[in-house]
Amino acid sequence: MIKLKKCKQLNPSLLAGLTIIIVISVLAFIPGAFTHYNPTDIASDSILKAPSDLHLFGTDNFGRDIFSRVIYATRIDVMIGIFSVLIPFIIGTTLGLISGYYGGKIDSLIMRTVDIFMAFPYMVLAIAIVAIEQAGLWALFLSMWLVSWKEYARLIRSEVLVVKNAEYVEAAKVLAYSDFRIITRSILPNVLSSAIIYAASDVVMCMLSGAAMSYLGLGVQAPTPEWGAIISGGKAFLSTAWWITIFPGIFLVVTGFGFSLIGDGLSDILRKGRA
C-alpha cells in the first residue's frame, strides 16, 4: 500500500525504528548464532556472577547465562508484541468497517459491545482467563485479544464515518459496485493509516503488558525465558545482582522505542498521503 516512491522519503525516525527492529528480529530468529549457552541450563558453579568476558550479562541465581536468556527471550517477546496486536487489529478493523459503513442496528450492537468491553478491567479479565485456562502463553494472548480489539473498532468506525460520505465512495456506488468491493477497495485503504499508526504503539503496550503479566506470574512460565519473567526473577537480588533485571529491562525499552519510532515515522508518511 505504501508505494515504493514514498519510501524514498523514509524519514529519520522511521529509519532508526526499522534499524532497531531489524536487529532485534535477527536476534529473535537466530539466537543460537550469538551465544553458545543454553538459556535454561543450570550451572551450580557459576551462581550470581557479575558480567564478565565469560558471561557478558552475568548469571542468575541458578547460574543461567543472562545474555543467552535475554537473547532467547527476544523471540517470544516480539511474538507477544506482534501477535497480540495482529489478531485484534484484524477483528477490530472488520467490525469497525461493518459498524461504520452500515450504521443503524448493527452499528449500535457493535458499539454497545465495545462499551461493555471498555468498562471491563483488563487485569481482572486476564486473571479470570488464567483461572479458566491456565497461566501461559495462550492465556496471555487470549486476554490481550479480548481487550484490545475494541480500540481498533472504534478508530476505524470513526474514520469510516468520514470517508463513506466522500464523493469517490458515492462514485463507487453509482458504478453499482457491491458493498464488499466498496468497503475493501474504496474505504479500507483510506481508513487504515491511523489504525496502523496506533498498532505500532500498541505493540509496545502489548509487550509491556505481556512482560507485566509474566512478572505477576500470569503469563509465560518459568523456565521459558521472557523479559518480564527474567526481571521478576531478579527482583529479589536487585541490590546484589543488578544485572539480572537491568539487561532485560534495557532490551524491553529499546524494542519498545523501536516500535514507537516506526509508529511515529509511519504517521508522518501516511498522513501526508491523505488528500
Binding site: M1, A166, E167, Y168, E170, A171, A172, V174, L175, R185, S186, P189, N190, G273, R274, A275
Partner: peptide, 15 residues
Amino acid sequence: QMIFQDPYSSLNPRM
C-alpha cells in the same frame, strides 16, 4: 453515471 462537484474528493486517493 454521475460527475461530481469536488475534484479533490471525487477520486480515491489510494488508487
